[in-house]
Amino acid sequence: MSCENSSCSASNGEPTATRSAAPMWIIVAALVILFVGGYYFDQHSGWFDPKVYAPYASGEKLSAYQPQSGEAAALAKGKAVYESVCGICHGSDGLGKPGQAPALAGSEWVVAKGFNRLAHIPLAGVNGPIQVAGKDWNMAMAAMGAALPDDSLAAVLTYIRGSWGNKASAVSADDIKKIRASMGGASVPCSCDQLKAMPE
């Protein structure tokens, strides 16, 4: 049956749509959301790193929380010990405090080739006049490091010898152990002359 007979109505009432272009404002809105979304993605996604989960947002932030090993670990540990034991007087910037403690940054005692004399300072303490980086001090420093374990003390010495522009060699826990043994348990603060009498 087709529509040749006039009794049936052709299905010509189908809906139509007049063609028109998408308006500019919505395309601009799309671009704005894409831009903001891209920034949000950059800030929060960790760039597809499968190890990064919320609330962390990047691999770098995540690794800052990881336990470290090797030289970096020693430095991080040294920094932590320094700030809780030494930094109170010597300053967390290593510049010392006037009338209280000399600077460690640029101190000839700290950056000397060997660390034997340096290690004696926290292990035994210092007493009497001493010259540090061209300034005269009259010191009364207790044996602040005597109670620290070997590896902590080694880490602190490594830290102060390698920070704030100092560039001297690292100190190992074994070295500290040997120096401690050579002192034979003596904990009388050294004078400047005693320190100078020791090998470097």
Binding site: Y40, F41, F48, Y56
Partner: peptide, 19 residues
């Protein structure tokens, strides 16, 4: 509980799905 980029992409796509 999935890597952060998945919910992040999802959020960005959701903002775009407003359009």
């Amino acid at each position: 509980p999935v890597p952060a980029w998945l919910p992040t992409v999802s959020s960005v796509a959701a903002a775009l799905a407003i359009l």
